[in-house]
């Protein structure tokens, strides 16, 4: 049995949002995870708690708010929630345009996060993620290459 690989669905992407501040932006990510049925209510405070410990800004205008290790029990299923803030959110002095809420119980999301890392290493693609008005474009930017998907069945013969 292979682990299920996470793919972003259109419902997990919100473009053109606005947030008053970082806490509001984290709440929006958390509520979207809640709407997706990925977490229990109690996961949202854990996201703020985690953020307070050490900020989740990763660069290129992107932050990845998520819960604490202890809050894993409040995760029903692994999911990501992408919320874009075209006007920016002050994230402890960094300007965040995209916040990606993470709820993970396993490893299913590693592929999408590796696609995120790849996207952010190419300035034009990072800019597209921050500014696009196309949900499909976001999904495309966060779709892992097959070889970066750890749950992909290994096929050594195909190399």
């Amino acid at each position: 049995m292979t682990a299920e690989r996470l793919r972003l669905s259109a419902e997990a992407v919100r473009l053109g949002a606005a947030a008053a501040d970082k806490a509001d932006a984290i709440d929006q990510c958390g509520r979207l995870l809640l709407e997706l049925g990925a977490v229990e209510e109690g996961y949202l405070p854990a996201m703020h708690e985690r953020e307070h410990t050490i900020a989740t800004y990763i660069g290129e205008g992107v932050a990845i708010p998520h819960g604490t290790n202890e809050a894993r029990s409040l995760v029903r299923r692994t999911a990501l929630a992408v919320v874009q803030f075209p006007d920016g959110v002050d994230w402890d002095g960094s300007d965040v345009r995209v916040a990606i809420g993470i709820a993970a119980s396993g490893e299913e999301h590693i592929g999408v996060l590796s696609a995120l890392a790849t996207t952010l290493s190419v300035p034009e693609q990072a800019a597209l993620l921050r500014t696009t008005t196309s949900v499909d474009a976001v999904i495309q930017l966060l779709t892992p290459a097959p070889e970066n998907d750890p749950a992909e069945p290994r096929n050594e013969a195909s190399r």
């Binding site: 985690r50 990763i58 604490t68 290790n69 993970a104 750890p150």
Partner: peptide, 14 residues
């Protein structure tokens, strides 16, 4: 990383 689900997962593949 703090929770083992965010930043460390982001860096792992690369």
């Amino acid at each position: 990383c703090d929770a083992g689900m965010g930043s460390s997962a982001l860096l792992k593949t690369q």
